[in-house]
Design a protein around this nucleic acid. Structure first.
Lengths: 176, 176
DNA sequence: GTTTGCATGTAAACGGTTACATGATTGG
DNA sequence: CCAATCATGTAACCGTTTACATGCAAAC
């Protein structure tokens, strides 16, 4: 999903600044699935404003830059729903880890074990985040997304731990 | 992983043309994780040739455009291993489906059910592909990658089927 | 007869990231 | 004292996708 649509989505949950939109996904356990950088969020919000899909009010602050608080307009809501009613693009899961594992036979066994260990550790952190998030009050859709992510990470970790154990003591060399 | 590295990786398994490199991932069950288009593969191969990481030989063909068969050079092999020894970038799983589910409460219930149905069907197709692939002789690393992908899709499907059943007859409206 | 497969390549457009610029406040 | 948080924005760059250009052969 493009950054424009992501912004609209978050704004359906309440008004927010560009900064807050970024934060909304950053530590929600869903960064893996939806993310955007400032360099894309700010221009997106300007354009959405020009197009009347969101509106802005400026809150003057002392000792801090003024905040621009964005609200979604009825047209924006319609645009979001429109985007979600069209055929969705397919998921793309770009995984440097899986790519590297594909060529495990070219790497020193210690490197392969390290790669797996790190990926396990990373996934454990994500799982922990998801569990924290799951304790908060959520919209049903968010609950669904978080539970799905939880399921996938759990399955992956089980697999990784099992296979990692199998690597102990021997290498992942070419096999037929 | 960038297209350059992907090309190098495939060429460690044997010489190939740009066309074949594209095909190598396209139906291997791993498209979800690694992919590239012609528009990026051909320029990447030219650049790799200029840099001495691959070499080309041209095979003249009648009634078809000549094929340019690429081979990885020792320098190319070293470059690939170098890339796999550096810290890997994190996975990014961009999922329009999960994004849409996050806003399920804004959509007609029929649309939500349809979204899930389609995602289930898509995942079943991917699983079938993976199972086909798993029957072929594979490098250990490929086996690992395919089994991992299989594990994740299976877990996801179980989850989706279970939840879908729960949706029958009622909607995914806002909850607290 | 139309689609799919084989085969290469370029150019424009796109969407996004990274780095830069600025700067006070708060918490460790 | 240093890092993180809050806060906005621009510009350069990057990698990739999409569309275009070309064209025969085989399969359905």
């Amino acid at each position: 999903m493009d950054v424009r649509t992501i912004c609209l989505g978050i704004l359906t949950r309440g008004d927010a600044t560009g900064y807050e939109i970024k934060k909304a996904f950053e530590d929600g356990g869903l960064q893996h699935f939806v993310e955007a950088s400032f360099g894309s969020i700010y221009p997106a919000l300007s354009r959405l404003t020009d197009e009347g899909l969101v509106s802005v009010r400026e809150e003057v602050q002392e000792k801090r830059p003024d905040r621009k608080v964005y609200s979604i307009t009825p047209a924006g809501r319609a645009a979001l729903i429109g985007a979600l009613m069209k055929p969705l693009p397919e998921d793309r899961h770009r995984s440097p880890f899986i790519f590297a594992m594909l060529f495990a036979d070219l790497l020193p066994p210690a490197r392969v074990r390290m790669l797996i260990d790190r990926y396990v550790a990373q996934s454990e952190r994500k799982l922990a985040q998801l569990e924290l998030r799951a304790r908060e009050p959520l919209f049903a859709g968010e609950r669904f997304a978080i539970d799905l992510a939880h399921t996938m990470y759990t399955a992956m970790l089980d697999f990784l731990r099992k296979r990692h154990a199998e690597f102990e003591g021997h290498t992942l060399q070419a096999a037929e």
